[in-house]
Design a protein around this nucleic acid. Structure first.
Lengths: 242, 242
DNA sequence: GACTTGCATCTCAGATAATGAGACGGCAAT
DNA sequence: ATTGCCGTCTCATTATCTGAGATGCAAGTC
């Protein structure tokens, strides 16, 4: 494969980063691994250190820097949001209700993507909105697959019970009636990351009059399907990582 | 802050990556965000795409690439291993037993760092060794804080019970007697990542004759302290992420 | 359908930054 | 004390990078 991008310095910097993927590396080892001149490697490595893409360990070896962890977190969020868009639009159209994706942030859940029902009576949750982890079907989903300690802590003062969460795990989806807001019903299902861990929840929400007292019976299948699609979408580009 | 590293191309590439941290970005937006000339940004961005540090989305906007996720995973592993070294040496010296750090990998646990007792009767577990998740105090720790479904699946055919794991969660440490290997006893405690989630286990192991039938009584405190130190060490450099 | 606008992409002459041989200092091993 | 290796620094030389301007394309407007 042609390894030249047309920008020599970036090609060389990428070689340095590739070499550091194996672990802490001395300058001499970097020189050997990259085949570049020693002062060249030194200068490029220091430049990468300056930008925190690389660091130095206690033996003064070069290591991958914390900035790559920060950028990776942003990259992960990007992919969830990018993949969520079309899935939520389809879900909104299929159900006629507003659809959202929530992620957990401590004791809150945050809406990171949203597709609103455009007309009529609807539940509006703008992107960025922080909602409680103590009520609502998305909270039930985000909590159901937490470890025991976090589960117990999360249930404290919650509008739902351990039995409800056991049902969520069994069925693979959650429903709520007026938990977060009077008159609003919702259905949610889990989105799983490449490791299988629950990283987000897909939800629809709307007035109880339309969603009835059993919104799950009406919509659980299509919400679960949307969540599964999102789960699959997040797998596709990380096969090389697997 | 002086933003010049001495390698202009790397400075510019870092500006591009910084701009992409906010999300998918068109070329025009990158030009605006970086203040660089349009063909310069174009050329640098394509070079970063070539090395998968950047990607293009379905609207042809530039996004952070999967390579940064790969490098971040390597960086995370680096930091755990780097931080583990001194902690395990101190633990080995304090207890007179071999000490290890394990991470979970599917149905196995892998030794990622090790400090061996140098002489006499000792338990040797080289770095890279894969051990079962069905037996041993480290397996108990790595399983105790999993979600309910993974907990149930993990207990299937395990040498320990739900009651044992409940005790691990309550005490914050685990002990085992001859679970993995006849005559070997061990004590383990959880290492938590910045999010509070259990990401690894610190262990000591050795002959039952020395560790007695209650190795936890002898060593749980110092093992737990070592795990807490490792947890703290992993927090320090990620404050800026928090 | 024609025209305009804005964006992405490409070219290449010229200027500048990057290169790397060699020097230097520090440190560990002998 | 000596030697060898490593990391760091300097600077003359040269190759790379730059960015103004051209080109092509798509979308919007009339």
């Amino acid at each position: 494969m042609d390894n030249s991008s047309g920008v020599g310095v970036i090609d060389k910097a990428a070689m340095v980063l590739d070499a550091l993927e194996a672990g802490p590396t001395t300058l001499a080892q970097l020189v050997a691994a990259t085949g570049l001149a020693r002062p060249t490697v030194h200068r490029l490595a220091l430049a990468l250190v300056h930008h925190r893409l690389v660091g130095r360990d206690m033996q003064n070896r070069f290591v991958l820097g914390t900035r790559v962890v920060e950028l990776a977190a942003a990259a992960g969020e990007d992919r969830l949001i990018a993949s969520a868009g079309p899935v939520l639009l389809a879900l909104r159209d299929a159900t006629g209700e507003s659809a959202q994706v929530f992620r957990r942030q401590g004791e809150w859940r945050v809406c990171v993507a949203s597709a609103e029902r455009p007309i009529g009576l609807r539940d509006t949750i703008p992107v960025g909105t922080q909602l409680t982890m103590k009520a609502g079907s998305a909270a039930q989903v985000l909590l159901s697959w937490e470890d025991h300690d976090r589960l117990v802590e999360g249930l404290h003062n919650a509008r739902f019970t351990p039995t409800v969460l056991a049902g969520v795990r069994r069925r693979g989806w959650a429903q709520s009636l007026g938990e977060r807001e009077l008159g609003v019903a919702s259905v949610s299902a889990p989105v799983r990351g490449p490791s299988g861990r629950v990283i987000a929840a897909v939800s629809i929400s709307g007035p109880m009059e339309r969603l009835t007292r059993q919104p799950g019976r009406l919509h659980a299948e299509v919400v679960s399907k949307a969540a599964a699609e999102l789960t699959e979408a997040l797998k596709v580009s990380t096969d090389s990582v697997a």
